[in-house]
Design a protein around this nucleic acid. Structure first.
Lengths: 210, 210, 210, 210
DNA sequence: GATGAATGAGCCTTCATTCAT
DNA sequence: TATGAATGAAGGCTCATTCAT
């Protein structure tokens, strides 16, 4: 799983100093939150002058948005891929459970590689309208439609109960996020048996909506 | 369902000005977050002098903790009641589903009456060690043990599958919170059919763990 | 040696609450200084409401002045007494040394009974024009004239060298204060042999100016 | 006599703004005292923004300590010099009176060049434990030992009476400080004949302890 | 007279942002 | 492009003083 910072670097053509700034910001903000992290602290940890931050990012909020926006996209990445729906329909995933299985494992690995970024996203989403807007746009234009199509597909195959799609999505997302938040944020140090937990999570969802 | 502010007033014997302060703080902090809300703004909205806040709460953080701590307790209130476990064992809830049904409806009403407070709790939990400590204490000493006993009880009756209790609890909590966060925070203005949603949530949980 | 607070009580006709206020103020201000002592703290230690202080003293500064002013007078008290100069001239003190001896012992005892008050006077004199004015008035109208007459008297008797009176006074005061400040403020816990120290102080002054 | 601010500038490598801040702080604090001087006032007089003060000094107290600490050292400077005791023993000062003479004149000039700083030291010593600690350390490790050696030396030469060293030191310090406080602080505007006053002060000390 | 809740001016301090070098 | 000293608005908090009870 490609690291988000790799993605950033390629997408945005970042200089080495910029990379240091972003890395420092991610570390500090994910640990202490946006409002408890000062730009001077970010600069210090990044090994640059405070002014350098503002040469690359107009404001502190700009830096946050730059960091968080791609995460929103990437976290839902599989659902974006044109081929995602194609694959569903081309029987790449014979059963909904196969799709769910692939989806969870893929998102689990992504989360594992990007814990700090996801912490930031979850924590700051509540406070920054810019982030909310970005999230809503991605969700309603990409995530929801892709999910919708797939769900309709498996409903017709008789693999999903006749529940409102929103309810099914909510159930899937709640169970996955509920697991991951426990796994990576609340009890990261617990001795987890990931394989079993993932299987159980899939099973619980399937029993509910399948 | 008694309003939290009622509870605060009675428990803490608050003066009218104090009530205004707490009300203003809840409104503002739930809307904009703790760090975006200044004490001068709270004072203005409460119709008191800024100094008055500090006569009643030593620090701004103190005010937050005073607001949030009882919510932690109250949100888990049913599980506290000595009689909760008693009731379970005395066959008040013949089936696990009955218990779940009672629990969800009760918590739904509580949430409905205290949306701003619950928003504050969820939003600020990440940033304030004091709140985390308070939450952890309540969870591990009260919520978890009560849940545990009840789950064991219904397991023996064969109504719950042989999953780890933690997994069962996580499933219950994830689905309930997932619903409520959507219902009250993300899409509060949507035209919800609460009765149906609640039934579905219960059903989804029961299918998963039952 | 009558305690200053006794004097205050008699002179000012103070109520019991007032006495408590003044006592608390003296304790706290002498320990921590005027600016580090809040009126709320004084009220608490005095066991009265904060408002009560302002019923008796228009301002906090007023309270300080009320406390300090009589100390200025009392510290120079012997020199005030009409009879002081009389006594000198009526040969009560045959030699300057006798006078000095009586004076130092008397002032030593006074200081010993009123350490906190004298600390306050010395510490706050620098910052409060009101106190300075009071001090200057007493010094130039009472202390200096009385000293002057006595010094002239013993000069004529050939017991004092022909130094400017101001220099003689400064020497006397410097040596006495130098001793007392060490004795009561800088090293109050040292194991002092007061009798010897006093005799030495007298001797040092006499050798200098005698 | 090098001005203290010169010393500060060299020792601490201060920027021009810093020098202005320190100068303004010295002026204001010596006039009105630490607690009557606000940082905004210091900034205004220094011609800098208030924030600039805190870029150079972490707290207001820090600024005070930075100003006062070197004064404690410098005021006792001659006694520090390795050569001071050497000089005494190498007969640079044949008689105690020569030493005292050199010492007083040197300290007189220092005081004259640094009146505001010495006022601050004397005034604030009472209220700031940090300053007290610094003073005590210098006094007990440097001033007292140097004085001690010199006194013992002249005692053996028969030039000082057999008084406790502490008493001799107290007499010297009391008389010198007594003179200087009158000269520079209490009556700075009087028309002083410094030469005569200094000679008299020396004479009074020598008569007392010699 | 006594109370103590309420006031609000003023303080110290932080920090995102600017700009001359 | 990078620096980091300087800025100044804004924030949390203290405390002498007032006043209705």
């Amino acid at each position: 799983m490609a690291d988000m910072i790799e993605i950033l670097r390629e997408q945005e053509n970042m200089t080495p100093k910029q990379i240091e700034i972003v890395k420092a910001a991610i570390e500090l903000i994910s640990e202490k939150g946006y409002y408890n992290t000062s730009t001077s602290e970010i600069a210090r940890r990044a090994g640059v002058a405070e002014g350098t931050i503002f040469r690359h990012y107009r404001t502190k909020k700009d830096l946050l948005v730059t960091i968080v926006t791609p995460v929103i996209t990437s976290f839902s990445a599989p659902l974006f891929a044109e081929k995602f729906v194609d694959q569903v329909f081309r029987d790449k995933y014979a059963h909904f459970e196969d799709l769910l299985n692939a989806f969870i494992r893929n998102r689990f690995e992504f989360a594992q590689s990007n814990i700090p970024l996801i912490k930031i996203l979850l924590q700051e989403l509540a406070f920054h309208p810019e982030i909310q807007a970005s999230y809503k746009e991605v969700f309603s234009n990409k995530v929801f439609p892709a999910f919708n199509q797939a769900i309709d597909f498996y409903k017709e195959k008789g693999e999903l109960r006749d529940l409102p799609n929103e309810t099914i999505i909510r159930t899937i997302v709640s169970n996955i996020l509920g697991f991951m938040i426990n796994r990576f944020i609340i009890q990261p140090d617990k001795d987890w048996d990931d394989e079993t937990e993932i299987k159980q999570t899939i099973d619980l969802i399937i029993r509910g909506v399948g």
